[in-house]
Structure formats: structure tokens, C-alpha cells
Design a binder for these strands. Sequence first.
DNA 1: CGAGCGATTCGC
DNA 2: CGAATCGCTCGG
Length: 196
Amino acid sequence: MAALPDDFYVRPNVTEIAKELIGMVLYSNVGGCITAGKIVEVEAYSGTNDKACHANENKRTPRTEIMFQKGGLAYVYLCYGMHRLFNVVTNVEGMADAVLIRALEPLEGIEYMLQRSNKNTLKGITSGPAKLSVAMGIQLRHYGARLNEGELWIEYEGFKPSGIIETTRIGVDYAGLDALKPWRFYEQGNSWVSKP
DNA sequence: CGAGCGATTCGC
DNA sequence: CGAATCGCTCGG
């Protein structure tokens, strides 16, 4: 198996990419520990026509700058002063789109996930964007990291989602009408989804 | 240069 | 339901 090529990320339709990411496998190799999980829940964000996006109206700031780069990079940022959220940058250079990874189904490196999360059981350990970052060892230093060479990457391993549910995104009420966009996607019936 | 505010989580 | 907690963003 190999990491997804840039071509996968460098496409204009962010919701299409988001849906295709369901069932793919996110890998991390941090501190010599390999962990992996199947992506079961994502949300799409767009720099154009989406007030929920940090780069809405193509707003360039030091933080959003990475989203304007060519797809295939990691966008990791600090939320509520304590949580790291992991996104995948998509689209061509100049178009600030990204997909937030919201939940995984643990596959590999379970013992490292438990250790990093300081837990005894897997229950809910990767069900939520901040929690999966802890379990996978994703740090702020991964901001801008390439997703096909380095500590983070995504592979296709043949998993076929039973079905994909489309619904509204979580925690973006401030975005007004854009909060109504059905840009949250998750695998139907998967118990690792954060909020079914 | 300082006030306000989260793409969340956990515990009360 | 409210606190935790701090970098980013914007206004002055």
C-alpha cells in the first residue's frame, strides 16, 4: 500500500474529496510508533462561499496561509486553547479548501493510542477531532506537513463504507446560513462516529 | 498592544 | 451546562 498521491488532493470539489476519504486509512509514524485508523467521519470547509471556514472569503492570515497552498498538506491548529484539530488541505494553490478529520476507527498501534490518551480502554478514543489527534500523536508542528512523505499520510486499503450519511457540521453555528450546509459526512452505522 | 473568542471535551 | 486555556485575529 502507498500514500495517496497529490492528485487525489489537488481537485476542486472538496465535498467529493471528503466523501472519498471515508474508509481511507490515516497513518502516523511519530516517535517511532506507527498508528493507524480508518476514517469514519469528516467535514468539508471551503475558502469561498463558506463562513465556517477559517479562510472564508479567501482571508489570508498566518494561520490560514497553509490552506492556500497546493492540496496534500496537513492543516493543524489549536482550538479552545487546548485541542489540536487535524485537516487535510485540498484544491489547487490559491484555493483554500480543507477537510477536517473528525473520527477514526482504530486499526493499528492500539497500545500507543491508549498510552498517548492515558486510557485503559479504546472506547471513544478516536471519536472526535481533538481526541484522535491525541491518540495519533498529531502535534502543532505537523502544520504544513506533506501527507505523502513524513510522519502523516493516508492510504486506500480497499475499505468500502456501508453507506455515507450527509448532515450539517458540528460547532459552526456562528456561520449563519453556511452552518446549514450538509458538509459533514460519516459512515453509516459505524460506532466510532463522534456524534451519529 | 490588549480584549474577545473559538471546527472541543470532560466533569458536575 | 459550564469551565478549561491560549494562539489567532482584529480593533484601537
